[in-house]
Simulated scan of single mutants.
Amino acid sequence: MTGMTLMPRTGEEWTVDDLDLLPDDGLQYELLDGLLLVSPAPAPLHQRVITRLLVLLHAACPPGYEVLPAPLDWRPDTRTSLQPDLLIARNEDVGEHHVTAPLALAVEVLSPATRRKDQVLKRSKYEDAGVRSYWIVDPAEPSLLALDLTDGSYSTTAHVSGTERAVLEGPFPVEVVPADLVRPAP
């Protein structure tokens, strides 16, 4: 997991209570089944993609749902606290400090430091915890892999790259063109 640090711990596993005691030092701290994951701050391209997706999803979002960017903790249990780059949750599921209910959508934008974490570790946790839709965006290609939960497992609903258009229904209708997400502002 290049660029990502696993914090050693002797004795007990990490919990969300331990996570709340860590400093606000510009690093991203996440917890996955008791294992602390630490990632560096994202690069401008990563943030550009998140911003474009946030605007796109916000415009298509129906009443009763919210589109929110990281850092916002999703805590499905006491041993997990993940921060998807973007998440969509029902309004009533958004708490004062974090979200605990299964998400309607989690979006991760890949970077060299987070690629394996997003494609393997987070994907598995989101699937196991009932996150209905999971999108993985790769700005280097650029591409979008959209997955929807069917009978407890993720199945691919779209896999597009460049100027190809993904017409997605989950969690609500929206169209995404990966190349549009990486272009600098005019």
Rank of each mutant, 00 (worst) to 15 (best):
L110W: 11
Y134G: 05
T157F: 10
D33H: 02
V137P: 10
L53R: 08
A70L: 09
G130S: 00
D33M: 02
A185L: 15
F172T: 02
A129H: 02
T163E: 15
G64H: 11
L87F: 11
A106F: 02
L6M: 15
T5A: 05
T15K: 00
E66C: 12
V177M: 03
Y134C: 05
T150V: 07
V182A: 10
V120L: 15
H98G: 05
E12N: 14
E164S: 03
L6N: 12
L144D: 08
P139N: 04
G162T: 01
R48Y: 03
H46Q: 05
A140C: 01
Q47H: 10
V55E: 13
A158T: 06
R183G: 00
R90C: 01
R115D: 15
S153R: 13
P69T: 05
V49F: 07
L147W: 15
L54V: 00
A104F: 04
S155Y: 13
D148I: 06
H58W: 03
R79C: 05
P184M: 05
L87C: 11
L36Y: 12
E127Y: 02
E141T: 02
T10E: 08
A146K: 04
R79Q: 10
V94M: 13
K122A: 01
P184F: 09
A89F: 14
A158G: 06
L147N: 15
L45N: 01
W74H: 07
S133Y: 08
L181E: 09
A106V: 00
A41H: 14
R48I: 00
L105V: 00
G3N: 02
E169T: 13
S124Q: 12
T2I: 08
R9H: 11
P84D: 00
V38R: 14
C61S: 03
P71A: 04
L32C: 14
D93Y: 08
V160R: 03
R90K: 04
M1S: 09
T157N: 06
P8A: 06
H46A: 05
M7E: 14
A41N: 13
E127N: 06
T5I: 06
M7R: 13
P178I: 05
A166W: 07
G162D: 05
E169F: 14
L37E: 09
K122C: 01
L145M: 08
T15G: 02
A185P: 10
K117Y: 15
P173D: 14
L149R: 01
P142F: 01
A43S: 14
P84M: 00
S143P: 03
L6C: 12
P184E: 13
T100E: 10
D85V: 07
A179G: 04
T100R: 12
V182D: 15
R75A: 06
G162L: 03
T80A: 04
P44T: 03
V107N: 05
G95M: 06
L86M: 13
P69H: 06
A146M: 04
E164L: 01
T2N: 12
T157V: 12
Y134R: 11
P102E: 01
G3K: 03
R165V: 08
H97R: 12
G11I: 09
A101L: 06
P23G: 00
A101S: 11
P139E: 04
T51D: 11
Q83K: 14
L110Y: 12
E12K: 13
Y126R: 03
V120M: 11
